[in-house]
Design a protein around this nucleic acid. Structure first.
Length: 480
RNA sequence: CGGGCUGUAGCGCAGCUUGGUUAGCGCGCUUGACUGGGGGUCAAGAGGUCGCGGGUUCAAAUCCCGCCAGCCCGACCA
């Protein structure tokens, strides 16, 4: 890994974690917080989150959900009402036992997720079938005291959006699950340029208290999987625990069927790990805090002339609705700025100096390919929206190709164990939790999901040879 | 919690084995000059409770004991 006195970031192959950490810190996305596992998100990093948030919030509202806010603190007794839920989360809870100068009668939990508080409120808000469906979303922070934190991917405190809905029956709830899964897929693909594989979680990987969990799995450059978002059908488990019930048209009292779903700041880490290279980040234009950076070159009167031209260009680009940064820091050399903005992942750089000015052109550099082009200043600005769109697509295509090149089929134990060290593996599985555990012990890989789009297929479990379950192949990978 | 390792300037580190000038180096920072199309050059500066506590000694960053914090690899996980 690069020492501070070396330039650049060295190959990611020798140590992916070190590459990732250094990128996050040097590109000024985040810093480590004062408490183990906490994270300070820097303004540049937060802008990426704001852009994800804006795009996702729009989709959430378009599909009929409303934003609300619930308390950070939850009485421990609330959490205990749903047995599996408390069992799943108890190891990672932060609990307040002392406040206001004395010990509390009942400990207060800092929310690890909000099913329980929201369930409590849903119970009060819902009494008739006319109140359904209830579609609520919350933008919030949550706390999970994980054993091994990692910037963005697994921090003690993280930001997310959590959707919580209540429905009259299972069919409506499953429809809701599909709605949420769809917009997560759209955000991943169209905004973050991340190809995802969508599938059902196996019983042992399911959310604590869920009947059915759907996850979106991404493959990053070191061949490991990241679950970038999930949706859960909770059946009537939470409804029974919190008495979320309604009187039907027929006059019967029925339990609601509830769902929950979330996407978090983990997305930022996934984007870095999927798209980044040895020079630094590569941000999809739709999420780049700056889509275009303009670097002026020259000194004194020459620089003054260049800057006049650059301000014109900047105005035109702003007029096209683009996010533009003019790097007019006068104490830094152009070469330094080139590297600096490549590190920060800005998709397109425009260089403008006396040499360009004399012939009425600018130099345009693509972060993905590194290619330099000379473009006439006259129509430079107007070509940018399309250029950014192509960049966005090329980035997605590259990630998709990488994923497909690292997705293999395995039909025997040896094939499975070998292939799963560096990518996705599709294999038939018996569906037995104990077998899943053995695979994990042997290879470090887990069942990521049962892909919804897989072809129907039966046979014997690649690992243990027992008859296969699920009627299709299961996706395995080592995961973050 | 298990295995490995590290705490010395804002960041990254050397010095410790074998105790002894004023604790050093690189990056960054400040000032000035020259420079400027791929991480510039030179000069002059600022910046330290050597993680914390105790012990040994004439003398401790260095040796001994205890504590604390952090990192990496596992188990847990969005």
């Amino acid at each position: 890994m690069a020492k501070a006195d070396e330039k650049g970031i060295t190959t990611q192959n020798e140590d992916f974690s070190a590459w990732y950490n250094e990128l996050v810190l040097r590109a000024e996305l985040a810093d480590r917080g004062p408490v183990r596992g906490t994270m300070v998100i820097r303004p540049y990093g937060y802008r990426i989150w704001e852009l994800i948030e804006a795009a996702l919030d729009q989709k959430i509202k378009e599909t009929g959900h409303e934003n609300a806010y619930f308390p950070l603190f939850i009485p421990e007794s609330h959490l205990k009402r749903e047995a599996e839920h408390i069992e799943g989360f108890s190891p990672e809870l932060a609990i307040v036992t002392h406040a206001g100068g004395h010990d509390l009668d009942e400990p207060i939990v800092v929310r690890p997720t909000s099913e329980t508080v929201i369930g409590e409120m849903f119970s009060k808000w819902i009494s008739s079938y006319r109140d359904l469906p209830l579609l609520i979303n919350q933008w919030a922070n949550v706390v999970r005291w994980e054993l091994r934190p990692r910037l963005f991917l697994r921090t003690t405190e993280f930001l997310w959006q959590e959707g919580h809905t209540a429905h009259a029956n299972e069919a409506d709830a499953i429809t809701e699950l599909n709605v949420a899964t769809n917009f997560y897929e759209e955000i991943s693909r169209d905004i973050a340029a991340l190809p995802v594989i969508i599938g059902l979680k196996t019983a042992s990987e399911r959310f604590a208290g869920a009947v059915r969990t759907v996850s979106l799995e991404t493959l990053v450059r070191d061949g490991r999987a990241i679950q970038s978002s999930t949706t859960h059908y909770l059946g009537t488990n939470f409804a029974r625990a919190f008495d979320i019930s309604y009187t039907s048209r027929e006059g019967n009292v029925e339990y609601c069927h509830t769902t929950s779903w979330g996407m978090s700041t983990r997305m930022i880490g996934t984007i870095i790990m999927t798209h980044g290279d040895d020079k630094g980040l590569i941000l999809p234009p739709k999420l780049a805090p700056f889509q275009i950076v303009i670097v002026p070159i020259g000194r004194d009167e020459e620089l003054a002339k260049v800057l006049v031209e650059i301000r014109h260009l900047e105005t035109r680009l702003h007029g096209l609705g683009l996010r533009v940064k003019v790097d007019d820091r006068d104490q830094l050399s152009p070469g330094f700025k080139f590297n600096d903005w490549e590190l920060r992942g800005v998709p397109i750089r425009i260089e403008l100096g006396p040499r360009d000015l004399s012939t009425g052109v600018a130099t345009v550099v693509d972060r993905l390919t590194g290619e330099k082009e000379t473009i006439s200043l006259r129509d430079l600005a107007e070509t940018m929206p399309q250029r950014l769109e192509l960049f966005q697509q090329a980035l997605y295509q590259r990630a998709l190709t990488f994923r497909d090149d690292h997705t293999r089929r395995a039909d025997s134990k040896d094939e499975l164990l070998q292939a799963v060290t560096t990518g996705f593996v599709l294999a038939l599985h018996c569906g037995d939790s104990a077998c899943e555990r053995s695979i994990k012990q042997d290879s470090g890989a887990s069942a990521r999901c049962i892909p919804l789009e897989g072809d129907e297929e039966t046979g014997s479990c690649a690992y243990c040879g027992a008859p296969s379950a699920y009627g299709r192949r299961v996706l395995f990978a080592r995961a973050y």
